[in-house]
């Protein structure tokens, strides 16, 4: 005989079992991720190839405009490769962040009709972006083979930087997802952030171009540490890794994630009322 579970619903009661519930619903999380991946490429002629084509064209354009025409320095590695290892993490961040931000209002129907820990929705959006990222990583593999660049032991640190970017995207995404429910203005801010971030983060250029005294401040953007980390891990570049920047990135991304989760948790109970 199974022990009957008792649930108490009360105003302002924080769920004691929230994290356990989150685990209980992990299958829903997987299903939502699976749905979004499935739906994204259904009815497209090229299907999953889009996950590769999009960053590929961006790399191409960056290489021509910034590499050839503007002749930006690339720390002694082929520019295409130099920019590729930055564009992939950037696009991962940008799509994870914007999908997570819009995920809650995009699933309004579910939110107002079914209970589950709402955190699942933005989390599964970030998962989808991670899968796309994994697919697009083949570009870097291809480019490295083409240029005959072999990754060293540092490549093993890559998961740490992926985690760093994931945490930043999730944290920022949670803030925006929750704010979006109440203030739809944030829907317009999201693409703006994603677009602007591409230029202020060291994607087309190396962060070594930033004057030393500004460098720590510049690193407040966690993507600076993330992208630098990617370059350091994969390329045998002449530039050493700027450690204070990476530390700063860990601080800001954890801060984003912790406050993001806290804010989301605090507001999620009213989602069904105002969405």
């Amino acid at each position: 005989m199974r022990q009957a579970q008792e649930t108490i619903i009360e105003a302002g009661r924080t769920e004691r079992h929230y994290w356990r519930d989150l685990w209980r619903y992990h299958e829903l999380f997987l299903f939502l991720t699976w749905r979004d991946i499935l739906v994204r490429y259904k009815q497209t002629v090229l299907g999953v190839a889009w996950a590769i084509l999009r960053p590929l064209f961006t790399i191409l354009i960056f290489s021509v405009v910034f590499g050839r025409l503007a002749n930006l320095p690339s720390d002694g590695v082929p520019y295409a490769l130099f920019v590729a290892v930055a564009i992939l993490p950037w696009q991962f961040f940008a799509s994870a962040f914007s999908d997570a931000s819009n995920s809650v209002i995009g699933n309004a129907g579910m939110i107002s009709k079914v209970y589950f820990p709402r955190l699942i929705i933005p989390a599964s959006s970030v998962m989808v972006a991670l899968v796309d990222f994994a697919l697009s990583a083949t570009i870097v593999v291809g480019l490295m083979a083409w240029y005959g660049v072999l990754p060293g032991w540092r490549a093993l640190t890559l998961p740490v930087f992926v985690l760093l970017i994931l945490a930043s995207a999730m944290g920022a995404g949670l803030w925006f997802a929750a704010l979006n429910v109440r203030y739809r203005d944030f829907r317009y801010v999201v693409p703006f952030v994603a677009q602007l971030g591409l230029y202020i983060s060291p994607v087309g250029f190396g962060s070594s171009l930033i004057p030393e005294k500004w460098r720590l401040l510049y690193s407040v953007n966690p993507m600076v540490g993330g992208i630098d980390g990617f370059r350091w891990a994969l390329l045998d570049s002449s530039q050493p890794l700027y450690w204070p920047g990476v530390q700063m990135a860990f601080v800001t991304s954890s801060l984003l994630l912790v406050t993001g989760v806290a804010f989301f948790r605090r507001t999620e109970k009213s989602f069904a009322d105002i969405i």
């Binding site: 579970q5 105003a11 009709k113």
Partner: peptide
């Protein structure tokens, strides 16, 4: 009762596993 929104006042105690069907075909 389905846990979708919380009450402003009061308390509800539910014994057992709940499933709600407030709409068909959600999701």
């Amino acid at each position: 009762l389905s846990h979708i929104t919380e009450p402003t006042e009061g308390r509800i105690t539910i014994t057992g596993k709940v499933a709600s069907l407030l709409e068909v075909g959600t999701g």
